[in-house]
């Protein structure tokens, strides 16, 4: 690990909503400091500079992959990046994009018509299906704190602390009302990776699981509790697979 004072960085985006990179721009009060420690190789949303060919210290990769051209770009990025960090739900497990059901050709034809017959695309896949991933930053969107912490730790030659507990624990620490048990609301806090300080449940909004599934999740017990909320089996399935339970996702690997 190097400990020099600047990081040469690329931000690479595949199929996504751009929310992960916007979140970095949303760190308004830290951008000044970021400007001092980061040298942009390529970050098309932010900068018109960048030669896009040099080896970089760190590539932040957002989005899932759904075309052969995207996979080729990803492989090239892996080759010229010392570290590759996957950012956000789409990059980590396919995200919302991966929820499309049904045969891809007919889905494309249904939306875009016959012209789509020549388009080469496949069901969206997470980054780790193709290349080695050195670090992951979860969330839809990711937390500002985690983006900055990761860059800061890497700059100083280390890794940030790894979060392994569920959102549920953050609710306990903050003494939030339990939406699942007390209100029978379909909260996914018990199996969702913490790190957001349970911001949605703290406002009375049930967790939708956007940070992905925690290791050793007790899915059976959550499933039983979700049945008690009055949701149908299909609705529970939809809710559980929204972030992290899809057949393409790492959660099931």
């Amino acid at each position: 690990m190097r400990t020099t004072s600047s990081l040469k960085l690329s931000w690479v985006r595949f199929t996504s909503c751009s929310g992960c990179q916007l979140m970095l721009l949303n760190c308004e009060t830290s951008l000044n400091e970021l400007a001092r420690i980061v040298e942009l190789d390529a970050f098309p949303l932010v900068s018109s500079a960048g030669d896009r060919s040099e080896p970089v210290d760190i590539a932040l990769v957002e989005g899932s992959l759904s075309t052969p051209e995207e996979v080729e770009r990803l492989l090239a990025i892996r080759r010229h990046s010392r570290l590759l960090v996957a950012v956000g739900a789409c990059a980590l497990n396919g995200g919302i994009n991966a929820l499309v059901k049904g045969e891809r050709r007919s889905c494309l034809a249904g939306i875009y018509g016959e012209q789509s017959a020549g388009w080469d695309s496949f069901p969206p896949q997470p980054v780790h299906h193709f290349v080695r991933v050195d670090w992951q930053i979860p969330g839809c969107p990711p937390e500002r704190r985690e983006l900055l912490e990761s860059l800061g730790s890497i700059l100083h030659g280390g890794w940030p602390g790894r979060q392994l507990m569920p959102v549920c624990m953050e609710c306990r620490c903050n003494e939030n009302r339990c939406l699942l048990v007390e209100d029978h609301a379909p909260c996914l806090g018990p199996i969702t990776l913490a790190g957001c300080n349970a911001s949605c449940p703290a406002r009375g909004v049930p967790c939708e699981g956007c940070r992905g599934v925690v290791p050793e999740a007790n899915r059976d017990e959550l499933y039983r509790l979700l049945l008690e909320t009055g949701l149908s089996v299909q609705e529970i399935q939809h809710r559980l697979e929204r972030f992290g339970g899809t057949p393409h996702g790492q959660a099931d690997r």
């Binding site: 929820l99 499309v100 889905c107 494309l108 789509s116 388009w119 695309s121 939809h238």
Partner: peptide, 22 residues
């Protein structure tokens, strides 16, 4: 040049109150 994301296909079949979250 965004890759097709097929939102129309992915929201159909979901309950009315889940669709805005998607």
């Amino acid at each position: 040049l965004e890759s097709p994301r097929l939102f129309e296909a992915l929201v159909t079949g979901h309950r009315y109150d889940a669709v805005p979250e998607l």
